[in-house]
């Protein structure tokens, strides 16, 4: 499909179930419309592109990795999580209405050519390694790369 000369750039800072859902939904819709689309994952948002294994090196890093475990299957909603009950409830409610799950949405983004980049500084702070991320992540980058992509895009979202 011919590109229409526009583009979409999404900064995914939040790692909440609902906000990752919003990010992948907009990214897939944008890519479906033929817009070059990039997602820049930073801080909690990195959880959305982690494989889900435990992370961290030092004591505090391991604690963050345990208390805020990455991977789509571990994401809880920003409200009404109630220690995981909310996550179960939302998943059930969404499935009953034919709404795609996070895994399916992320795969749709990948299939449609959405480019995933991840913030180097956040990875260092959270002690997340490249091996903790899904292989579809194209590169580990800095803020300048995020800015360049945002500048090139006609639509930018910060989620």
């Amino acid at each position: 499909m011919a590109e229409n000369g526009k583009g979409c750039m999404i900064v995914q800072m939040s790692g909440d179930f609902d906000k990752v859902f919003a990010g992948f939904t907009l990214a897939s819709a944008s890519a479906a419309a033929g817009m070059p689309t990039t997602m820049f994952f930073t801080f909690w948002g990195i959880k959305a592109i982690q494989t889900g294994n435990l992370t961290g090196k030092g004591l505090m890093g391991r604690m963050v990795g345990l208390m805020n475990r990455g991977g789509l299957q571990h994401l809880g909603p920003s409200k009404f999580n109630f220690g995981g009950v909310g996550r179960w409830m939302f998943k059930k409610m969404m499935a009953s209405k034919g709404v795609a799950g996070l895994e399916e949405l992320r795969q749709a983004c990948i299939d449609l050519g959405v480019k995933f980049y991840v913030c180097k500084t956040s990875m260092d702070v959270m002690e997340i390694r490249r091996e903790d991320l899904i292989p579809e992540v194209l590169d580990v980058v800095g803020a300048a790369k995020a800015m360049r992509d945002a500048d090139a895009a006609s639509v930018q979202y910060f989620i």
Binding site: M1, T25, S28, A29, A31, A32, A33, G34, K97, G98, V99, A100, E104, L105, A108, D111, L112
Partner: peptide, 17 residues
């Protein structure tokens, strides 16, 4: 049928390709 946003559009884009 039975699919919610954005999957009908995602699949439409894939099919059109």
């Amino acid at each position: 049928v039975g699919q919610a946003c954005p999957m009908p559009i995602v699949n439409m884009a894939k099919n059109m390709r």
